[in-house]
Amino acid sequence: MDLLEVSKLNIRYRTKDRTIHAVRDLSISIKRGEVVGLVGESGCGKSTFGMSLLRLLPVSTDISAKKMMFNAGDGMQAGGIDILELSEKELRRLRWKHISVIFQGSMNSLNPVARIGSQFADAMFWHGFDDETIKNSISSHLELVHLDDSIRKSYPHELSGGMKQRVAIAMALVCSPELVIADEPTTALDVVVQRRILKLLMDTKEKLNLSIIFITHDISLLASIADRVAVMYAGSIVEIGDVRTLFRSPLHPYTKGLMSTIPRVDERQSELVEIHGSPPDLSGSIRGCPFAPRCGIATELCAVEMPQLRVVEGRHMVSCHNVEVQDGKND
């Protein structure tokens, strides 16, 4: 049984004058110990999806799904936890204990007037750990992220950005979650620090057998860390597959665009490949393929009919009318 199973998830934000349909019919499942990369432009719904797993969305948000199950490893709830059915109290248990999160701003969300150690202790205290466990696990978790134990006596402003992000990672792991949502955790960091944080994340993942949903706008990051990559556009997954398959033979024009639009340090380029236009307005309904207006190979069919996610081969799926897929495997 997969750790997380989401099927036909829809999320709508209500604002004063309109409703934004941020996530549209999204289905994904995540295995234990798997790293899934979620990539897309800002506003494609990737962060909204991440936060919905913790139900950390504004109150004026409608979430509906055919299925949104978290199958916890401790078997305390046979048949898994239905994330959408949890009460506020059960949600608190789910957050951090089963699913935790590291965001881009995590390093800035440390309380500036409290020592690192006491912030750790507070977080654990609220989850019902006793003093002895708290003391030991602070040390072991700081060690896990390669920070010196003396850090616990420091205040956040005494640490560099990279160190704060390490602290944030350690805090996210302190209640031994099974799934970590990493929402652009390295975006504000320099490349050298970024690489170290990624390495750290991968090492800890191996040690603790974590599953990670890694949300980013930079597809090249995922090549070195993800097992599977899902490309999101306008609230839906347009292509998903094993990292090697996806990077070797991307099929969706948008995936191809994302991969070739980035400047390369190891190649000489005289001109960069552009993706023209901008993503569609998510407040209305979209006719046809949402990427069609920006797509170089769009046909008449694309303008009128929304393509479904179809299996290409194995776990590789794509939603594009112009991609040949094996017959018979369509649903």
Binding site: Q194, L221, A223, S224, I225, F247, R248, I262, V265
Partner: peptide, 11 residues
Amino acid sequence: DSVPVPDPERG
């Protein structure tokens, strides 16, 4: 060396 390379083989 720290620039991510979009190539899983070298990941």
